[in-house]
Amino acid sequence: MATLKELSAREELFSGGHRLCAGCGIPPIMRLLLRSAGAPVVATTATGCLEVGTTIYPYTSWRISWIHSAFENSAATISGIESAYRSLKKKGKIAADKDIKFLALGGDGGTYDIGFQALSGALERGHDFLYVCYDNGAYMNTGIQRSSATPLGSATTTSPAGSAHPGKGQWRKDLTRIVVAHNIPYAAQASPHNWRDLAKKAEKAFNTEGPTFLNVVSPCPLGWYSKPELSIETAKLAVDTCYWPLYEVEDGILKVNYKPREKKPIEEWLKLQGRFKHLFKEENRWLLEETQKRIDSEWERLLEMDGKRVF
């Protein structure tokens, strides 16, 4: 596992000068990812903040080969690229010793929702690629609309906190579990605050043959109504409250990578974010309790599976 000193000596493949918001959680994830590949990377990105923010013509932040096609087809696009690579290699049009890593990227909208089918298909077909979802919990690029990754009670522009409906009425989809159910060789959840864990998982995923998946929580000052300087802290609290457990499933064995010494109450994470402000009103306290109960039970479930075979 490389140290930060070693990582900093590697080429910066994601340049500054992009238009992502100040304090955005996505770039630190990308910078670490690209440093962890160990070979040239060809990437595709679903429509969304990352795509728009990094490639406003004639500028690009990417120092790797990169393509954006549409919103729902990141996994299908990488399937085509990776198939072309295998085909051209087989035909001798690419040198036999040339190694390329394939990376598909998408936000939670492009992954949990509209790109879900393409992702499932690509995982099932077994293409050799890494899919990374930066999960900021809503359609941030189009102005903070709820997605199936949006937490219960969160206020978004399509689930506003009104007097009749206090924010999003549903629990979030557990995409990582669904991905694991595809029986792929490696899947994990990570967070940018724990760079060591994230870099390790990225390295492992890139070096595993077949489809691999990382779901990375990505704080969004704009959509979370949180302070930009607190982005990394917010990510850390998401993990310390067990809202976003760090775990991996490698060849079917589940491993919880981090168990907080003291599990923090979910309120500590929620209170940093304006999107949950209304939950602290007396009439909505039941939603806080509901959230805590659900997190506790899911964390319990995860701990029960720790070290066990899940497929």
Partner: peptide
């Protein structure tokens, strides 16, 4: 490692300053 704008300059493993052209 945490900078979203690749605006912390590291040279030879040392933090040498900020790239204020890109720091937001």
């Amino acid at each position: 490692v945490m900078c979203p704008d690749s605006a912390v300059i590291a040279e030879d493993g040392k933090m040498v300053g900020f790239d204020l052209e890109h720091c937001k």
